[in-house]
Each structure stands twice: as structure tokens, then as C-alpha cells.
Write a protein that binds this DNA or RNA. Structure first.
Length: 419
RNA sequence: GCGGUCGUAGCUCAAUUGGUUAGAGCGCCGGUUUGUGGUACCGGAGGUUGCGGGUUCGAUCCCCGUCGAUCGCCCCA
């Protein structure tokens, strides 16, 4: 690439490098996710980043944008079509089938990692993005829906994210959804000339989507479109009722969003989104629902399932308290004898569970500067005098107070100071 | 994929309606102090103004293209 020789190296479009506070916030989101997952009894699952292209084609529905134009697909050296995963659910369902995980059902699983979609990047929307993901496989009870939504709700609380609303809806069972969909198509077809260009296309591909069109003209039509409640089967109605009662009992606040639908074909019953108005056009922070037909479509046994995914980049933008890495102790050795002693002290403190740092270069001033900047609470100054006397100078960096501590008493003294 | 705005040092931004050698703060490196930080003072490095082309005596500034960022649409976490 001779034309690139002058050009600075840059990340691929829509992919980003994170360092410092941003990287720390990313980790913070994942840490809280793991902790809350543990409390809800979810177990980790690992699935590949790459799948056979047909895994996503079959499950996402041929007409969705993700499959039609957003997949990172390529041929490997054997000529097989592979795809970088654009979402988690399909891969997990595939694993459930190919690994015979039905023997463990019901399974409560969590995972997180990178996903890829070839889209126009925007704030909170990237070509490589990251999600946290939770799934319950093999449970058709509304209590599973309640539990997994409560999980997301508690996570948002633990992250201190306010101003997020849980929007809840149902798509009913297969009959309900089919009947409702037919009624919507009839309604919108009757007013075809008033529909926006986009919505005319949706009428073919995904009529439910017209319901949350942002076009003002469409919204007028949507206002008197038939609601799902008129088509709900008794079973589907009872299911939704049960989910709502469970959420209320769990203290999870929500609003009914009758226009909320899901893009993917395999959703049934519960659909939900945690939305915010702080991220521009990308309002959804966590979204999910029930997908009872998916595993069967993958060639597995009929398996009810419910899950959600949350965008880590979006969540980190809403975490307002920055989390900074903290070092307990910074060691400042001066001179060759001190270097050896410092290595011994570092090994000891690290084994004892303290986070430690040491100045590698510069005079005492430079090393103290770095020690202060590392965020350390205590500096250990170690020179020829201390080595000879078998002591360490312990300095509290916030007050500046310092004292001589015998080498053998160091750990006990530090434990007291850092408590 | 479509439309709007933007692109100057590592970062945040200046540069009078097109005019000498493109500046500042922060950060970085060094010094005042080769055993003491968060303050102060002094000095230094660092830019083909995203990239390519055009107009002009002359372009950071005007025009076109391209790449990237950003906002909205589509779709979605």
C-alpha cells in the first residue's frame, strides 16, 4: 500500500481504541454485570465469535437489515462462508443444539464480548461493539421473564444509571401475532397513500415496525391502528398478565408500550427495552424478549427461551461516576542495593494481595512524582540508609507524614495504614 | 445506503474578511534540587493545518473529490 505510506495508522471505521477512564468504565460495566449475574444464579457460557453464515441467516430472518446488509461475512481458506457474529442469541441457540445442552435445561446463561455489524457509525453505535447478554433456555414460565427482567433492572441500579425507563409489551403467541399482523397490514394498506416511503417498504418486510415510525404522517395512522389486545388469545393474555404481576411484586417499574415491537422474527410474548433519552437516536440500552421458536428453527427440540442484551458502549456513556484504578503502595527505590530489596518487598506485598507499583527510572523527585500520579496512598522510600538499617521509609502521600518502619513490621504497619 | 455539520501539536482549542516564521493551555522531556510528590520559576521537543487535486502572486481559510468523526433517517445494543 504505497499510498498509505504517508497516512497515519488509524483504526478501522467504526472501531475504537479505549484507554484510561474509558477502558475502566468498560471494565466496570462488565464487573457489575458479572456480580449481578452471580446473584441471580446465572452461569457463564462461551461461544465463538465466528459462526457459519447460515446460523445467522436462519435465525435472524432473511429480510432483516442485519442479514441483508450488515453482516461481516467472508470465505475462509476452505471456501466456507463464515460470519462475525452480529448478536449473541443465534450462536448460543446453535451451541444449545450442537452440544446437547437440553440435558441441563432450564439453563440460565450469561456472556459478553464483541459483536460486528457493518453499519454507519454514530454515537453509541459502532461496527465493532460489545454487549452483555443473558439468556434463559428451556423455561416457558412467565417467572423466567420476570427474573431476567429483574436482573437487568438491578444491574442498571447497581451501575447507578438513572433516567432509564423499562418499556414492556407482548407480541402474543403465534396465533395472536399472526392475527394482529394481518389486521395491521389491512389497516395500513387501506391508507397506503398516506404512508411514508419507508413505511410502504415496511408493509412488505416488517409491518409491525410501522408502529414505531418517526414520521409524523405515519404516527397519525398509527394512532388509530388496531392494538394487539383485541387479538390476544386467552393463554397469551394470561401469560402477559402474569409477567406484569411478577414485575410489580419484584419492585420493577415499567410502562406498557403497546407500540414496542422487535425486529427479529423469532420473538414471541414478552418484548422489552430499557430506554433513555440521553443517547440521541440510540435510545435502547438493554433490549430483549422471549424467543420460543428459535431453538426449534435451529433444528433442536422445541425450547422456550427468553433473553436480553445490553450495549456496553451505551451503558458506559451513562455511568457518571468515573471509576479509577487505585494503587495501594508505590515503591521508590534509590540505588542498586535498594533495587534488590524493593523486588523482595514488591513480591511480598503482591502475594499479600496489595496492588503495588514501582518507579523504574529517574531521580528521587521523578519517582515520587510518578508515585503520586499513580494514585497510591503510600510511598515506600528505600535507599542505602534504609537498606543498611533494615528499615523502610513509609510516607503517606495525602498528608506527607512519614516514618521509619522496621522491615519485619512493614506488612502489619501497611495493613493498619491502608485499612 | 441517504441527508446536514465538522477535521489545526499527544489532548482541548486560537489564528483578525485569503497575506511574513501557524499560537496558547494542559500533557510530555530536562533544569532550579544526582534522598522526597501533588505548588512555583526557567528551558526544550513536538505540525507538510486528515489526505489528494483545483482556483490564486499567495490557501488553515475558497471550490471539488476522498477518508474519518459527529447529528438525523433506515435499523438496532
Amino acid at each position: 500500500m504505497t499510498t498509505d505510506s504517508k497516512q497515519k495508522m488509524a483504526p478501522v471505521r467504526g472501531m475504537q481504541d479505549l484507554l484510561g477512564e474509558e477502558a475502566a468504565r468498560f471494565e466496570h460495566v462488565v464487573d457489575r454485570f458479572r456480580d449481578v449475574a452471580r446473584r441471580f444464579g446465572f452461569r457463564p457460557v462461551m461461544v465463538p465469535v465466528v459462526e457459519h453464515t447460515r446460523v445467522f441467516q436462519r435465525t435472524l430472518g432473511e429480510t432483516t437489515d442485519v442479514v441483508a446488509k450488515e453482516m461481516y461475512s467472508f470465505e475462509d481458506r476452505g471456501g466456507e462462508s463464515l460470519t462475525l457474529r452480529p448478536e449473541f442469541t443465534a450462536g448460543i441457540a446453535r451451541a444449545y443444539v450442537s452440544e446437547g445442552w437440553q440435558q441441563f435445561a432450564p439453563l440460565k446463561l450469561v456472556t459478553h464480548g464483541p459483536l460486528f455489524r457493518y453499519e454507519r457509525p454514530q454515537k453509541g453505535r459502532y461496527r465493532q461493539f460489545h454487549q452483555i447478554d443473558a439468556e434463559v433456555l428451556g423455561a416457558g414460565e412467565p417467572a423466567a421473564d420476570v427474573e431476567i427482567i429483574a436482573f437487568a433492572d438491578l444491574l442498571l441500579k447497581e451501575l447507578g444509571i438513572g433516567g432509564v425507563t423499562l418499556q414492556l409489551n407482548t407480541l402474543g403467541d403465534a396465533q395472536t401475532r399472526t392475527a394482529w399482523r394481518a389486521a395491521l397490514v389491512a389497516h395500513f394498506s387501506a391508507h397506503m397513500e398516506m404512508l411514508s416511503q419507508d413505511s410502504r417498504r415496511r408493509l412488505e418486510s416488517n409491518p409491525l415496525r410501522i408502529l414505531d415510525s418517526k414520521d409524523a404522517g405515519d404516527q397519525a395512522l398509527v394512532a388509530d391502528a388496531p392494538g394487539i389486545d383485541g387479538f390476544m388469545s386467552a393463554e397469551a393474555g394470561a401469560f402477559f398478565e402474569s409477567v406484569q404481576k411478577g414485575l410489580q411484586a419484584s419492585g420493577v417499574g415499567f410502562v406498557r408500550a403497546a407500540r414496542l415491537v422487535r425486529g427479529f422474527d423469532y420473538y414471541r410474548h414478552t418484548a422489552f427495552e430499557f430506554v433513555t433519552d440521553r443517547l440521541g437516536a440510540q435510545g435502547t440500552v438493554i433490549g430483549g424478549g422471549r424467543y420460543d421458536g428459535l431453538v426449534e428453527a435451529m433444528g433442536g427440540p422445541p425450547t422456550p427461551a427468553v433473553g436480553w442484551a445490553g450495549g456496553i458502549e451505551r451503558l458506559m456513556m451513562l455511568v457518571d461516576s468515573p471509576v479509577t484504578a487505585v494503587i495501594d503502595v508505590a515503591v521508590v527505590p534509590m540505588g542498586a542495593a535498594a533495587d534488590a530489596e524493593a523486588a523482595a518487598i514488591l513480591a511480598e506485598l503482591r502475594s499479600a494481595g496489595l496492588s503495588t507499583e514501582q518507579g523504574w527510572r529517574g531521580n528521587a523527585k521523578k519517582r515520587m512524582e510518578r508515585a503520586a500520579r499513580s494514585g497510591a496512598r503510600v510511598a515506600l522510600i528505600l535507599g542505602d540508609d534504609e537498606v543498611a538499617a533494615g528499615t523502610v521509609t513509609v510516607k503517606l502521600l495525602d498528608t506527607g507524614a512519614q516514618e521509619q518502619v522496621a522491615r519485619g513490621d512493614l506488612r502489619a504497619r501497611l495493613a493498619k495504614l491502608l485499612a
